[in-house]
């Protein structure tokens, strides 16, 4: 065998690895960054651990029949879950009635009809709406929506009502629904619209019969994320639905009521928290874990739908 290439003098393979000091530094940077990334897992573990531990304590302290009574009055040992669930459901329903059509309408307009200039102006304003703290919307719901909208429609309604809180929560989720749905519709390829116009379809036909069906998973995702946010919303309900202290079972949206989040709020805000190992206090964590699981499932479902739109096109 003949040697094809002469051996050239060059750096030994080992010397290309750099100085040991530099490699040590690289490795320590890697470890530091990895441990920073692991903190986020620690947070999830912390949430689950602190909620589950206390929730189990709570369930052991009470009789399970206390979870199904005539109302939610934690200080008297009545932890009726259906009062809270129906409350959350009613709030979410009202919020969707308000935010669903408005958010979706705004999304269709921004995606299909608006000029680029108009979109450039409107989208940041919608982002401002998304950035308004919920306590501000709560104040607005209590002082303006309740007297000027709810009491005009339902004259028997008082200062506090589930309807006013629901409308407030609806205002909060308009930007979420609008922006996620708009993203989904803009992801629909132009070719589909052009094909539709080529067949002689009108703009409304193209928007409703072509673009909307093509973007349907994204729109479903928009609603799911909106619902998840509505269920988790605390301050608006705590201020405007007026369930501090407790609430009897109610399905009347014109009256006061209580949701899962507002129940946590009314028990724990301010200086009148119940004492440390009280069952009433630990019921907070039980409600917290229910809320956590619900929103987690909704968010996972929303994620699946968002990803489905992305995969399509």
């Amino acid at each position: 065998m003949t040697q094809l290439t002469p051996m050239l003098p060059g750096p030994e393979p080992m010397s290309l690895r750099g100085s040991p000091r530099r490699r040590r530094k690289e490795r320590s940077v890697h470890v530091v960054l990895l441990s920073a990334a692991l903190i986020s897992i620690l947070i999830s573990v912390g949430i689950v651990y602190s909620l589950v531990g206390n929730a189990i304590d709570f369930l052991q302290k009470i009789d399970l029949s206390q979870l199904w009574t005539t109302g939610y009055f934690p200080r008297r040992g009545l932890f009726d879950l259906k009062t809270l669930f129906i409350g959350s459901l009613l709030i979410t329903g009202v919020a969707l009635v308000v935010a669903g059509p408005i958010g979706l309408g705004a999304a269709i307009y921004l995606s299909e009809y608006a000029s680029p200039r108009m979109r450039r102006i409107c989208k940041p304003i919608l982002e401002v709406l998304a950035g308004i703290p919920s306590v501000v919307i709560g104040f607005f719901a209590l002082t303006w929506i309740a007297p000027n909208i709810v009491q005009r429609i339902f004259s028997q309604s008082g200062t506090f009502s589930l309807a006013a809180a629901g409308i407030g929560v609806g205002i909060l989720i308009i930007p979420i629904i609008a922006s996620v749905a708009e993203d989904a519709m803009r992801a629909v390829p132009l070719a589909l619209r052009e094909a539709s116009y080529g067949l002689g379809a009108r703009k409304i036909t193209t928007s409703v019969r072509v673009v909307l069906p093509a973007a349907v998973s994204g729109i479903v995702a928009a609603f799911i994320l909106g619902i998840s946010r509505a269920i988790g919303e605390t301050l608006v309900v705590a201020l405007a639905a007026g369930g501090s202290g407790g609430s009897v079972f109610t399905t009347d949206i014109t009256g006061p009521g209580q949701t899962v989040t507002a129940a946590i709020a009314s028990l724990s805000f301010g200086s009148d928290q119940p004492a440390g190992d009280d069952a009433a206090f630990q019921s907070l964590y039980f409600l917290g874990i229910i809320l956590f699981i619900f929103t987690l499932l909704l968010n996972l479902a929303g994620d699946v739908f968002v990803r489905r739109t992305r995969q399509h096109y």
Binding site: I47, S50, L51, L225, T261, I264, L298
Partner: peptide, 10 residues
């Protein structure tokens, strides 16, 4: 996506 009130409980 976790509601802020849950962070409060944490």
């Amino acid at each position: 996506g976790v509601p802020s009130v849950v962070y409060g409980l944490l």
